[in-house]
Design a protein around this nucleic acid. Sequence first.
DNA 1: CGGCGGTCCTGTCAGC
DNA 2: TGCTGACAGGACCGCC
Length: 274
Amino acid sequence: MPELPEVETVCRGLSNTILGRKITFADNLRPNLRIPFPENFGAVLKNKTIKNISRRAKYILITLDDGTIIIAHLGMSGKMVVFPNFQNDRQKHDHAIFQLDDGKELIFNDPRRFGLITFSDTANINKHKLIVNLGIEPLESGFDGKFLFKKFKNKNTPIKTAIMDASLVVGVGNIYACEALFRSAIAPTAKSGEISAAKCNELAGNIKNVLFEAIESGGSTLRDYVGSSGKSGYFQHRFKVYGREGESCVSCQNPIKRLKQSGRSSFYCANCQK
DNA sequence: CGGCGGTCCTGTCAGC
DNA sequence: TGCTGACAGGACCGCC
């Protein structure tokens, strides 16, 4: 999936292309993704105008002129792509379509169906089940070394698992967790409670930097991620450890290793990261 | 409550 | 060529 930089790239792309447009027709092409589509999906959206597009964690929030908010998540394999014309043929795994008053069409496609689309509204969005327990945004100023040091106190959880915990900090997925730990020279298995205040500062800074740089590069494309314009990202060419098992460390030339933590692959340099 | 494993689903790739 | 198993960007849920 898209991690935070990819979702941010999609949001920016959508803002540039569909903001202010009216939805003339919308439909879900199957009853559910990870959760069921809302009842009356098309009827609720018809003739509503798109007033705002934002992001909270990896959720895309599309606010309409009546206060309805479309909550969309791309899961592991989801895409939201704007086409210049209404499409005659539906592609495999197209699950929802939004036709706009300027003739463009927004399509939600998700092979693995780990994504979701549901509704909330401006009065209730912060209380929404999917939103209410989310932790701090990593690119906001409140996310810093002090914050991490405080949260990590007395925690036995491996640092990699901790920074991927969305109730602590959102949007740090497997790729950027690995990359930020490498930049900080911290082993993914290090106990979070044993990370010094100085190292927490370094780590918070590197999480921000790696996310910023990835957003600047239009995200990372592994298999088939594309932004809302259908373009690939470029940050994957700058991975130092992710997906590089057996290749040499860019810093010390020792081979990059891989291990499983909470069911996810962690890539790291055992020599550089302690 | 914290932490971990299983699970949802399809697609791709390596190995035999 | 075709089968099988491992693995993939996420995150919820339930179990200890």
